[in-house]
Design a binder for these strands. Structure first.
Lengths: 206, 206, 206, 206
DNA sequence: CATGAATGAGTTTTCATTCAT
DNA sequence: CATGAATGAAAACTCATTCAT
């Protein structure tokens, strides 16, 4: 008997595969047309299945949106988890942005700046999305504060709590602003952006 | 006949009033429901006119969106035009954000951060919107660069072109990031955000 | 100015006409296919208009059902209002049943036994329908009791309240049962049914 | 070999069990949501089996409806078969109605007044159902006539055929009307209803 | 025998757009 | 100039039925 306690059954595996197919399709459709602009029909076609089948795996279009939101939240959390310094953070963000621009076909649950915008906008309408975002903001805040503290410690400085908070805010604004500008101004030079962010990071330790 | 060359006729004046009524309504509907979520019916009702009349002044729903985009672009330009220093810029942005949060009925052609998001997202889909945005980015870039230069001159510093560019990028990211964070994290303390931005502005002159 | 206080405007008149067109179509579709079996598409086609237009006059399919229920309720009330004796009641009911059978194309808001069934069944599911029915039952009860009392008085008898109630129940069951049998057994002889009901009415006065 | 001519094989027995499970589930779903409102999915879940399996035992959803109709017909026949007098009939009907109201989970092949309505309504649409009902009406007619005759004989009266027919009609209307009223007016007092029906039965023998 | 994933046609409902008045 | 009734296409969602496993 290889039916160990938690090993997924064949049916469960298939269900997972299907959910993933739908989410992959939804992600790309949402990024292309927005949450409201993308139709179930488009997602179904992109996923290569009938519209009806989607409703076997998600009760709602909203449920798909929520799943995407949750997925992006997790991705953001995992990415931040391993970050040790401000410069590493800049490197991470710039890397993701460049990888995103290069891949015409974005697959996997990779970070997508347009989805990031879409989710933020949706949060002002859908309370469920807002709730997920609110919770996430707190953990992001903690992660960034830790980065700031670690960075300071590494360079032999001592920051009081007020200083940590201030710098955390700056870091957040910088990162979010970089993402937004990346979208708003596709002609922006990545190298220059990266250098600018790094420069601010340096001053954060002064 | 006082119908001199450029003085608008009565009919033209009326047309302008009507367009403004529609745009006011559209702005609030778009901010509330998004470009796709807001219906012509809702805009018409909010404008206190029939749906059909809207099509006398705008050929399309898209045309209304474009007008709103253009309007916000102008507003941004005018606001930046009078700015003399980084700190004044921070003050301007924070003032707009706080005024927006306080006004339950957002009205007039005031800056709206949600609309700002919506427009950015739409630019990735509608090439016309993207074009307007791209043009605008350049003039914003010039304005911000000027602010940086003026600030430097005022404090007796001399910056080479590379330094100006780098600081301009930082300024842009900070401002956009502040707007984004304002939406994503409604619990954020405005005073703290303002102090953080001011702090970075100080370092920009060091 | 012929715009007297309550005289309906042209628009209101048109709206009324359209509502009536829809209700006429709905009545016949519902009678033919049942509340759930009849589609909005069928009603729209039967009414000779687009599906979308129906939603200008009724918010819901449920709203149409409710309007039909209300309409039948009123019809029943008005019909009962003028009844003076049990025999007149039997005559009324039988007349309506025969007229219904004869008219292949049932128009107007005439009583329809199949709708009557459909409404009763729907009341067990839709609380709104149930509420209308419950209220109606009371007024029907009063009307029938009055008929019983008047009949008794006319034949010089005195009935105590318990007797009135008992006979009212019998009357209700007889009428409803006649309607049900009329549907269940299309081969039933109307004359015989009428005689049977009349016979019971006679005994009610004994 | 004990597989005598008519003894059902094990497979046949199983098939019977499965059919019964499906019909039990269908009955309760149909009573709750109506023939159109109840989905195969709901029936399958209620029966604790897959949707596909249902189609091994019934070709159609319509086939299930027909089976339910047939089943209720048989139940009605069997119930009437043992009836000796009008009062016994009233007792039977009232007993079934009260038992139905009390049982929150209606189960078994017990009589269900809502199903009774649903079937009658369906008969006006589905010719097959209408045919079953028509045949049934005749046998019910015979049964009721017999009850009338027996009752008369028991009380030493002689009725000519016309009288028997008239009273049979009254009996049918009373019973059907009682069922209909039971549904339409859930606040009705069972005792009073029973007394009223009994009172009419008494007059039928006068 | 049994499953339940999959389909496709159908459902109700919405909405940008047009046009007779 | 202004209305708002009307349309048709498309949206989200449901469901009876089939079929590979």
């Amino acid at each position: 008997m290889n039916l160990a306690a938690n090993s997924p059954s064949k049916a469960e595996q298939r269900a997972l595969v299907q959910r993933t197919r739908i989410l992959d399709a939804a992600r790309s459709c949402f990024a292309e047309s927005g949450f409201h602009g993308a139709s179930i029909a488009a997602i179904a076609e992109s996923a290569g299945m009938s519209q009806g089948l989607i409703y076997r795996y998600f009760t709602n279009k909203a449920a798909i949106v929520h799943a995407i939101v949750e997925e992006q939240r997790q991705g953001r959390g995992e990415a931040l988890a391993g970050i040790e310094s401000c410069h590493a953070l800049v490197d991470l963000v710039m890397g993701k942005l460049e990888r995103w621009r290069d891949s015409s076909t974005r697959f996997g649950s990779e970070f997508d700046p347009i989805l990031f915008l879409e989710i933020t906008a949706e949060a002002t309408r859908d309370p469920d999305v807002a709730a997920v975002l609110a919770t996430n903001e707190q953990s992001v805040w903690c992660d960034l504060s830790d980065v700031i503290r670690r960075d300071a410690r590494a360079s032999g400085k001592v920051l009081d709590e007020a200083q940590v908070q201030q710098r955390t805010i700056v870091l957040r604004c910088l990162v979010d602003g970089a993402i937004l500008n990346w979208i708003r101004d596709p002609s922006m030079d990545p190298q220059q952006l990266r250098r600018s962010l790094d420069a601010v990071c340096d001053t954060l330790l002064t």
